[in-house]
Simulated scan of single mutants.
Amino acid sequence: MLGLPDDRCLVMGVVNVTPDSFSDGGRWLDADTAIRHGIDLVSEGADLVDVGGESTRPGAIRIDGDEELRRVIPVIRGLVAEGIAVSVDTMRASTARESLEAGASIVNDVSGGRADPDMMALAAQTGSPIVLMHWREHSAVMQQHTHYDDLVEDITRELVVQVNAAVHAGVDPERIILDPGLGFSKTGDQNWTVLARLDAFVALRHPLLVAASRKRFLGELLSDGDELRPTDRRDDGTAAITTLAARAGAWCVRVHDPAASADAVRVVARLGREAR
């Protein structure tokens, strides 16, 4: 897809052009700094870079579309000018459209097309690959929506509803990427259940994106007593999940620190060739 490697799991680096993201909010808010960071991520092994201007951490409050555009468009243009493949992390069709016009190649919509009724039509019109994440509600209230009768069955069923809506709108099924939405309307224990059953999501026959990097459930697992492991010390745990995701057949992992994950996906690919 898009000229990216197809013989192994891909690694997507994260550039949050935000003041309030849970891991690195405020570090890359300046466009030039964000562009340099994206270049560094690629030099460390990322295959593509995901640029977002609106935090979706639990409890985050939405910003307006003009501010989102002000944050992401200069960064996307700068990275594309360096020959870097870019995805835009947005729930707004208007932001997605301008990002694609600026050179982005993929729309990564954490709402799975549910937050903006125009998103599916945009993906159909442009032919852009689109990531549909499992999503129930906006960040401010999403952790009030963690009840499932059967966790994996319910998530896969809700993802299929989103896929069907996209196809009905005219999106090419081969351009749809799925994301089970770790940390979104899910408890820490539920995240681990999802990771243990990635086979159920791979079985939906769409490329699978896994985004576990530095999330709270890792901080809880690796905590020292009552203190969460700090976000910048969760990268080894993230790389472990990368290994498991790649082994399960994930198309891509989304990470803040790509170096270890870039090594991990190559190890898994080599083992896979040997097994075949």
Rank of each mutant, 00 (worst) to 15 (best):
L228A: 12
A115C: 13
S261A: 15
E174V: 11
L100E: 01
G272K: 05
V80S: 06
I176T: 03
G83K: 07
V167G: 08
D64P: 01
T126R: 06
A212G: 10
Q143P: 01
W192T: 08
E153I: 09
R8T: 05
H147P: 05
A262N: 09
V17D: 08
T33W: 03
D118Y: 09
M91D: 14
G237V: 03
V17H: 06
L209V: 13
L209T: 01
V167A: 07
A240R: 02
I241M: 08
A81D: 15
A248T: 14
C252F: 06
T193N: 12
M91H: 11
H168E: 15
Q143S: 05
A121G: 12
A81S: 15
T243P: 12
R71F: 02
D149Y: 09
R70Y: 08
T238Q: 07
R254C: 13
G13R: 01
M12T: 09
E220C: 05
G249L: 05
D7H: 14
V49R: 02
D7Y: 05
V107F: 10
F22W: 12
E220A: 13
T193C: 10
D64N: 12
P19V: 08
T95P: 10
L159G: 00
E67L: 14
G113K: 00
A269F: 12
G25D: 09
L151S: 01
V86M: 08
Q190H: 05
T33V: 15
G78E: 03
A200C: 14
C9E: 00
R205M: 07
R114I: 07
D116Y: 11
Q162K: 15
I39Q: 15
N108L: 01
G26V: 06
R276C: 12
R233K: 14
G113M: 03
V171M: 07
D50S: 08
